[in-house]
Design a protein around this nucleic acid. Structure first.
Length: 666
DNA sequence: ACGCCGCGTATTTTT
DNA sequence: TACGCGGCGT
């Protein structure tokens, strides 16, 4: 507690009111949350099991839990909940299963599964699958905004919207048939349960003596409702957030939840954390300056007692290759001068496609680099296959899983057979598996196919039965053996090396399954698979510390990170701010994105842009980002750009180019 | 069942 | 330029 500054200490000790902590970038918000939890348990003698701390990512939850465990020791933290919103939702659903229309072993559909389900609905409704992504997006929006099927239908203003509403309902009906929930449902289902059953809500309210929410500006309407429900009128909670770092409105986050807090809880107190422990003064000055162009609910100004630092560099380049070249040479120079290591550097960009150019340049100079966020363990084909097998064993009605594995490894069940089976199941309004088990499938299929299908269904039924008693990792090993997955790998992989690699991945998966434990130490597959679906097995060998690498990362995923030396690249109009977010609200979010980027830097910040860039097929002249021109020019050092930097002029030039382009294209 | 070709399209990402 | 997807041919 002694390490906290007065504001932080105030935020920790204030437990009598609903509390909003406005935590600027680098102001030590994680310390506040962890110290507060420790304070509640150690000094106020709260039962750890009555404290709930909610984050958005597994990583944040993990780090928080570790820090608290270090502070208090294992005994004092048993029962404490530090989890993501979704894991908390899952926990509620699990323990209230008897009040819900789901069976044990229900499946959690990830975004890919959701898309395929939407496609399936479209197929049945005879709508072109081209719009599956848009329908999926719309459904997700409706769920996050808590719009019911009926409301969606009522609100529809044209045929397309009405159609979307019907697909929304059909989609949810199918989820029920498959005994499955999607990611959004993990929040939606508890919220609607709490709405319907007051006694259940009260039970949870009594359990929840204190609630803490991290990254509050990223909550959507549904998540905020869950928060309100859990804290009830007692309002024993702390939310921590920063409206200036709200960069996820495009996926449903509602930064206005900050404002709503004031009206929903009149006794709300606000503590601002404005002292920044990360960056040198000049960087903060530029950051403050640029974000001041946005509308604000609460004013906030970061300050630091560290030194002032060098002017920020702005480098104009000819094209992206030149840009990458510039960054690389500048970086190597700096590394030498400052005796820095590679992991002191990060390159931040707006869109993933920008990364290629930089990868190329890094490789050419033999600079070790890491592209973060690009690798997902769950996207590996072999992991997906086995995940689907496990899902299917636990929940045979999971058609998405069924379809994935029915012919993997090959069982001579081809597309035609599957097609017939799907139609048959549709006619019976049942899942694929129950169509085979509960109905006479041989009337719809040729004898040979029917036999194959029945064999598979029978195997599935048997192993399903065993899975309720047996440990999950044993079931998984049995699956691998029964279906002959290993020989399938060695047969289907070109070389033995990649087959081995895949087997290694599978071993890792088995290990993960072994290590997941249910509430009472249960290790049934049913519990393990549910948690596994929400886990991020992103960084497989996290503590394998051969990690001196330059980070190449998007602005979005850089949030929460910090680096001594930061390069923000592609600082051009139409890229940052991105051209598809040019309506007024959109530009504000883009500005916050720039703000997030700037505030990642501890010591130096270099910003680059290309004067020319290929967009689609055409090579387009580019102008520097308006954000560069909004910055206090005294703090910047421009290189390679002598044109007029008056914002009006630059914007005009941009428009002229655009008009020119339109002329050329006719 | 599989592979090839041509077409259309092109932010950001977590659970 | 690149990738993903649907259609078509083997």
């Amino acid at each position: 507690m002694r390490r906290l500054n007065p504001k932080q200490a105030e935020a920790v000790k204030n437990i009598g009111n609903p509390l909003l902590v406005l935590a600027g970038a680098g102001s030590g918000k994680t310390s506040v949350i962890t110290e507060k939890i420790a304070y509640l348990i150690r000094d106020c003698e709260y039962d750890p099991a009555s404290i709930y701390a909610v984050t958005f990512t597994n990583k944040a939850a993990r780090e928080m839990r570790e820090r608290i465990a270090k502070m208090l020791g294992e005994e004092l933290t048993t029962g404490l909940t530090v989890s993501t919103f979704h894991t908390l939702g899952l926990k509620i659903i699990h323990s209230e299963l008897k009040n819900l229309p789901y069976q044990r072993g229900f499946t959690i559909y990830d975004s890919e599964d959701s898309i395929s389900l939407v496609k399936e609905v479209l197929r049945i409704e005879k709508v072109s699958p081209d719009f599956a992504d848009q329908f999926r997006w719309q459904i997700s929006n409706w769920k996050n905004a808590m719009v019911s099927h009926d409301q969606a239908l009522e609100m529809a203003e044209n045929d397309l919207q009405a159609q979307a509403a019907r697909i929304y309902k059909a989609y949810d009906d199918y989820l029920k048939v498959y005994n499955a929930v999607d990611f959004d449902d993990l929040i939606v289902v508890p919220v609607s349960l709490f709405k319907q059953k007051t006694e259940v809500l009260e039970r949870w309210q009594n359990k929840t003596r204190y609630l803490l929410v991290d990254e509050y500006q990223d909550t959507n309407a549904c998540q905020y409702t869950l928060v309100k429900q859990l804290v009830g009128i007692r309002g024993a909670f702390t939310v921590v957030g920063d409206d200036d770092q709200s960069i996820y409105a495009w996926r449903g986050a509602q930064p206005e939840n900050l404002r709503l807090l004031v009206s929903d809880f009149p006794s709300l107190q606000v503590v601002k954390l404005e002292q920044n422990y990360r960056s040198l003064g000049r960087i903060l000055k530029v950051a403050n300056h640029i974000i001041a162009n946005n509308e604000h609910i609460f004013d906030k100004k970061l300050w630091s007692d560290k030194g002032y630092g060098d002017p920020l560099k702005v480098v104009a380049c000819d094209d992206p290759d030149h840009e990458a070249q510039k960054v690389v040479t500048e970086m190597l120079h700096k590394k030498f001068i400052e005796q820095a290591s590679y992991n002191d550097f990060a390159v931040l960009f707006r869109g993933n496609h920008q990364v290629r150019t930089f990868e190329k340049a890094m490789r050419a100079h033999r600079i070790p680099y890491k592209v973060s966020g690009s690798f997902s363990f769950f996207s590996l084909a072999e992991i997906k296959d086995l995940m689907c097998y496990m899902r299917l064993v636990v929940n045979p009605d999971d058609d998405a899983a069924f379809l994935r594995v029915i012919n993997t490894p090959r069982r001579e069940i081809g597309a035609k057979t599957v097609e017939l089976l799907r139609d048959f199941a549709n006619r019976n309004r049942s899942s694929l598996h129950s169509a085979i088990i509960d109905h006479d499938v041989s009337e719809a299929l040729p004898a040979r196919s029917a036999l194959r299908i029945k064999e598979f269904a029978q195997w599935l039924k048997d192993i399903s039965m065993r899975s309720t008693k047996e440990r999950g990792d044993i079931i998984l090993k049995d699956i691998i053996r029964d279906v002959g997955y290993e020989s399938y790998l060695t047969d289907s992989c070109k070389d033995i090396v990649s087959a081995r690699k895949r087997m290694e991945n599978i071993k890792d998966l088995i290990e993960w399954v072994e290590n997941i434990e249910g509430e009472n130490g249960e290790k049934t597959l049913e519990h393990q698979i549910a948690h596994l679906s929400l886990l991020d097995l992103l960084e497989k060998n996290e503590d394998e510390e051969a990690n001196d690498k330059v980070q190449l990362i998007t602005l979005h995923s850089s949030k929460g990170l910090e680096f001594p030396h930061v390069y923000m690249v592609g600082m051009e109009e139409d890229l940052l701010p991105h051209k598809s977010s040019m309506d007024e609200d959109g530009v504000e979010e883009e500005r916050r994105l720039a703000y997030v980027g700037i505030t990642r830097a501890q010591k130096t910040l270099t910003m680059t842009f290309s004067k020319r860039r290929r967009v689609g097929a055409e090579i387009v002249e580019r102008t520097p980002s308006r954000f560069l021109l909004e910055m206090p020019q005294d703090e910047l050092e421009w290189e390679g750009y002598n044109e007029n930097k008056d914002p009006e002029k630059v914007r005009e030039r941009g428009k002229a180019h655009l008009a020119n382009l339109k002329n050329i294209l006719g």
